[in-house]
């Protein structure tokens, strides 16, 4: 993840900034300039709640090199109360316990490291509510 590309995404990666269409109410995460549902162009910035629910999930056992140390790890599509969905790892739990319907909090974590002394890339991961 070269640094300009990572830096550009800071608003959504660090603060979960999304866009809500003032026309139809659809919340797009990360923010977009055109509503994916009604093609409206009037979107306002909203911050997603730091919690949500698992829509679907898996446990990645054969991981990309960058995530080899973390495998096996759970990954899930999470839906926040605003109706936005995002894909994250689900951590701080037995990955086998993660499944659809699980309530999670979104926490700030290190996501990946650029090779050979490159930048550290942060963002959000999910943690089951109440451990």
């Amino acid at each position: 993840m070269p640094s300009p590309r990572y830096w550009r995404e800071i608003p959504n990666r660090f603060r979960l900034e999304a866009a809500r269409c003032t026309g139809c109410g659809t919340v797009a995460f990360p923010a977009r300039t055109i509503c994916p549902k009604c093609r409206g162009r009037e979107l306002e910035s909203v911050r997603l709640s730091r919690h949500g629910k698992v829509v679907t999930s898996t446990v990645v056992r054969v991981a990309p090199d960058e995530f080899m140390m973390e495998a096996p790890y759970a990954m899930a599509v999470i839906e926040t109360p605003e109706g936005a969905r995002l894909m994250t790892q689900v951590v701080d739990c037995d990955p086998d316990t993660v499944g659809p319907g699980m309530e999670v909090d979104l926490v700030f974590r290190l996501i990946r490291k650029e090779d050979h002394g490159g930048i550290l890339c942060y963002g959000h991961k999910a943690v089951p509510v109440g451990g």
């Binding site: 898996t58 990645v60 991981a63 790890y73 990954m75 894909m87 790892q89 890339c121 991961k125």
Partner: peptide
């Protein structure tokens, strides 16, 4: 890349999520 691969998903992982759904 920005919203899926960044977080460590693989292709088997994506289809596994489709399967579970």
């Amino acid at each position: 890349q920005e919203n899926e691969v960044y977080h460590g998903i693989t292709f088997p992982g994506l289809y596994a999520m489709i399967a579970r759904a």
